[in-house]
């Protein structure tokens, strides 16, 4: 009896650990050896009980529990496969209007075009297109399951930059070090430590004026300790000449919508968010369903039968 309770406990713990992958799929712990070891130990305990029960060590109820234990083993296998064989969580960040191939998912992600207003609102989404399958539209905060993969959008800081010369003429912005050469949207993919604070950073150029510009994103939280320097969410610009030398007095903060002139360039950031696509491995859904149904059906078979037998006995006694 105690071995049966232990096996059922192991099965429930196993199910909880595996289902957790669907609840918080981006957690890196699912792809570690400790997680796999715990699942494997639980699976061994379940398997050991199932073998013994099949041989009759736990009586007729134990024998009828074997399908439920097989269901739990299927769930455990799904969790182990996803944790050990599934790829680590990957974050795909691309400029608005561009396409990212996702060979592991068999799809391509189309990142929606976004102007200054869309960046400010933070409502741009991503469309996933697959061969011979319907397109999937994802909005910020949404998630979508595709086979053994879950895709969700995570809002990342972004700034749409407008650059003008001294006479107000619009200037081309290039991002020579980024994949999206002609994007005016900064996604701040780098991390730079300034005065002990880690800041998202990016860079771009205004080739018509021969200017290279570094940009650092200050969130509200990062700005809080120095309200006199940068009140609230802002971008710190540092303007260099063609050869990378910082121009005199060419460092300054700009809040969203505020124009600042540095090194002869008028810069106006529209600060907001743009989504990154987070791709995580999850247990294969078919296996979870089969395993879960086997487990529940096995429980009903094992514990429903004495109740039914009792009912039949009662009925027989009444009619007699």
């Amino acid at each position: 009896m105690s071995s049966r309770i232990a096996a059922l406990g192991a099965a429930l713990a196993c199910g909880t650990l595996v289902l957790a992958q669907d609840v918080v799929p981006a957690w890196a712990g699912f792809h570690t050896w400790p997680y796999a070891t715990v699942l494997a130990i639980l699976a061994l305990a379940i398997g050991r009980y199932a073998l013994g029960a099949r041989a009759g060590s736990d009586g007729p109820t134990g024998r009828r529990l074997v399908p439920a234990m097989l269901g739990a083993l299927v769930v455990a296998a799904a969790g182990l496969s996803s944790g050990l064989l599934g790829p680590d969580t990957e974050t795909v960040q691309r400029a608005p209007g561009t396409v990212a191939p996702l060979p592991d998912v068999g799809a391509a992600a189309f990142f929606a075009a976004a102007d200054a207003a869309a960046i400010g609102r933070g409502d741009a989404g991503i469309v996933l297109r697959r061969r011979n399958a319907a397109a999937v539209e994802l909005s910020p905060g949404e998630r979508s399951f595709l086979g053994a993969t879950v895709l969700e959008l995570a809002a990342q800081p972004a700034a749409y930059i407008e650059a003008r010369d001294g006479r107000g003429n619009h200037l081309t912005i290039t991002q020579p070090t980024n994949a999206a050469f002609l994007s005016p949207v900064l996604l701040f993919p780098e991390r730079i430590v300034i005065s002990g604070e880690t800041l998202p950073a990016d860079s771009f150029a205004a080739p018509a004026l021969g200017r290279q510009i570094k940009a650092f994103y200050f969130s509200k939280a990062a700005s809080a300790p120095h309200p006199q320097l940068h009140p609230g969410e802002s971008v710190l610009f540092a303007v260099n000449d063609d050869s990378g030398h910082l121009l005199a007095g060419a460092i300054g903060f700009a809040q969203s919508g505020q124009e600042i002139t540095l090194g002869g360039v008028r810069l106006r950031p529209s600060i907001g968010t743009y989504p990154a696509l987070v791709i995580s491995a999850v247990p294969y859904p078919l296996a979870l369903w089969v395993g879960g149904l086997l487990f529940l059906a096995g429980l009903a078979y094992a514990f429903g039968r004495p109740f039914q037998t009792q009912k039949v006995a009662n009925r027989t006694a009444t009619s007699a």
Partner: peptide
């Protein structure tokens, strides 16, 4: 499902 071909990307 972790080894099988996922199919080529649509773009």
């Amino acid at each position: 499902s972790y080894f099988g071909p996922a199919g080529g990307p649509a773009g």
